[in-house]
């Protein structure tokens, strides 16, 4: 007589009922966790805006930092950030795109390619403060660029290089192989195929990658502190455009500077409570800038994806 482990229908139903209850409990738990995390963060952001509200106003944008909280503004900070972002973009875009093109279109599957790829992946995981140490030793002292806009821009360019490279590679890959084959079939060289057919259709993805990289760079504080960004800068770097020949100069690159996240950090660290409002306001603006850039990047990615229908 076989000893069967058959359950009666009633027993099955009871076990099932219990398991389904657990299922429902998990759904509640999951939703709870998800929305409390999101809710908590939303609350913190709203609090930030609320705390900083008293400082919002034209004055805040055009004033230099000051020892009086009510008068301290972010002029030098946002100008500094803008200039630094300019340098960062100018350096990371060509280098990142070129490296991505090499890896996607040219590189053979050999050890050198593997090393480059491993390095790109590895650099994405290096803590940002280590980039600051690198820049301190290399840009500030060895190359002698000093504590300048140039050093800051170069540091952040290296930091976001992996982002630009990965985004560019993905958009290069999205171009169908058939297009490349058709171009090669007509006798095009590798560069002609890349320049005439692959790059033009990747610009959306590349731009998206650049903007995402810049949105990351804009919030980076640690590397800038390490290379000596100061936060009581009551002056602006010299203007690149001047009234006399040659009309364009590069003095601003060598200038000392401050940046938005640095300014916020400085204000947050002050024991004087009045500056907390300044910090909150600066933080809210910084947050808005970051979210805006991300939104733009996502929109560009969406627009470009719809444009070409292979």
């Amino acid at each position: 007589m076989a000893a069967t482990a058959e359950l009666t229908l009633a027993e099955i139903r009871k076990g099932l009922h219990w398991r389904k209850q657990l299922d429902k409990v998990f759904v509640i738990v999951g939703l709870l966790v998800l929305f409390s995390c999101l809710g908590l963060l939303a609350m913190l952001f709203l609090d930030l805006v609320h705390n900083g509200a008293e400082r919002f106003g034209w004055d805040f944008f055009v004033n230099f930092p000051s020892r009086k909280a009510e008068r301290a503004g972010i002029l030098s900070a946002w100008v500094g950030t803008t200039l630094i972002m300019f340098v960062t973009a100018l350096v990371s875009l060509p280098v990142g795109v070129a490296a991505a093109i090499y890896l996607e279109e040219y590189a053979a599957k050999n050890w050198l390619t593997g090393i480059i790829e491993i390095n790109v992946t590895n650099l994405a995981g290096v803590p940002s403060i280590v980039y600051g140490l690198l820049a301190l030793g290399l840009f500030v002292y060895t190359f002698g660029f000093g504590q300048s806009v140039l050093s800051a821009g170069l540091t952040l360019a290296l930091l976001i290089l992996p982002i630009v490279i990965v985004a560019t590679r993905e958009s290069l890959r999205a171009v169908p192989k058939a297009i490349r084959e058709a171009a090669y079939g007509l006798g095009a060289t590798r560069w002609e195929v890349t320049k005439d057919h692959v790059l033009p259709y990747s610009t959306g993805g590349i731009l998206t990658g650049l903007i995402l990289g810049l949105s990351r760079a804009i919030g980076e504080t640690a590397p800038l502190i390490t290379i000596g960004a100061l936060s009581f800068i009551a002056f602006l770097p010299p203007s690149p455009v001047s009234g006399e020949f040659p009309f364009l100069n590069f003095e601003w690159l060598k200038s000392e500077y401050t940046a938005m996240p640095i300014q916020m950090f400085n204000w947050v660290s002050r024991p004087d409570q009045a500056f907390q409002a300044n910090a909150a306001a600066a933080g809210a603006i910084l947050l808005a800038m970051t979210l805006l850039m991300n939104a733009v990047a996502i929109w560009i990615r969406y627009r470009f994806r719809k444009k070409i229908n292979w």
Binding site: P94, V95, G96, A98, A99, I101, Y102, L103, Y106, A107, I115, I116, N119, V120, N122, L123, V126, V130, Y131, L133, L134, G137, L138, L158, L161, P162, I165, T189, R190, W191, E192
Partner: peptide, 26 residues
């Protein structure tokens, strides 16, 4: 032209390697 461009692109790729080496070295 193709060959020259390939060299330039390779150097861009090597920037990543150079960065890691520089970090370790410093």
């Amino acid at each position: 032209r193709d060959r020259a461009i390939e060299l330039v692109l390779l150097m861009a790729g090597l920037v990543a390697v150079f960065t890691t080496v520089a970090i370790v070295a410093i």
